[in-house]
Amino acid sequence: MNPKKEVISILLVDDEPHFRQGIRTLLNFYTSSNNIGLNVIGEAASVEQAVKLTLEQHPALILLDLELPPENGITALNRLGELSYNGKVLILSAHQQDEWIFRAMQAGACGYVFKDQLATQLCEAITTVINHQVYLPPAVATAFFRLFHYYTGNSLSFGNNCIHLTEREQEVLNWLVQGASNEQIAGNLYITVATVKAHLTAIFEKLSVTSRTQAIVKALKLGLVCP
Rank of each mutant, 00 (worst) to 15 (best):
R168F: 04
H18I: 15
Q121V: 01
L189T: 09
V113Y: 01
P69T: 12
Q133T: 10
T31L: 10
W175T: 02
V193W: 01
M105C: 12
D65T: 14
T201G: 09
K206N: 09
K218W: 03
L61V: 10
Q49W: 03
F158L: 15
R20K: 15
G108N: 10
L200N: 04
Q170D: 12
V7A: 09
P59N: 11
L122T: 06
Q170R: 12
E205D: 12
F158N: 07
V129K: 09
E183G: 00
I91G: 09
L176N: 01
S157C: 04
F114W: 08
I163E: 09
P137V: 09
N28A: 14
P70Y: 14
N182L: 06
R212N: 05
I41R: 03
P138L: 02
E167Y: 00
V209I: 06
L55P: 01
H58R: 15
L38D: 04
R212E: 13
T166R: 12
R79P: 05
E48I: 05
L136W: 04
P70R: 15
L173E: 07
S32D: 15
V89M: 05
W175Q: 07
T128D: 06
L66I: 05
D14V: 07
T127K: 14
D98K: 10
P227D: 07
G153N: 06
I62D: 06
Q57A: 11
P227G: 07
Q21P: 00
V113F: 02
E99H: 12
Q96L: 08
T142M: 10
S46W: 00
L90P: 02
E43L: 11
L64K: 11
T213Q: 13
D65H: 03
P138R: 03
T195I: 02
G73Q: 10
R103H: 12
A107I: 05
E16T: 09
T75D: 15
Q121W: 00
V225M: 00
I130C: 04
L176K: 03
D116S: 08
Q57K: 15
T210Y: 08
Y85P: 02
E82C: 07
W100I: 06
Q178E: 13
L12K: 01
T142E: 11
T192G: 10
E183P: 00
T213G: 01
T166G: 09
R146H: 02
N39T: 04
I36S: 03
F145A: 00
R212P: 01
V134I: 14
G179V: 05
L53V: 02
C162N: 14
A60C: 01
V140G: 04
G87D: 02
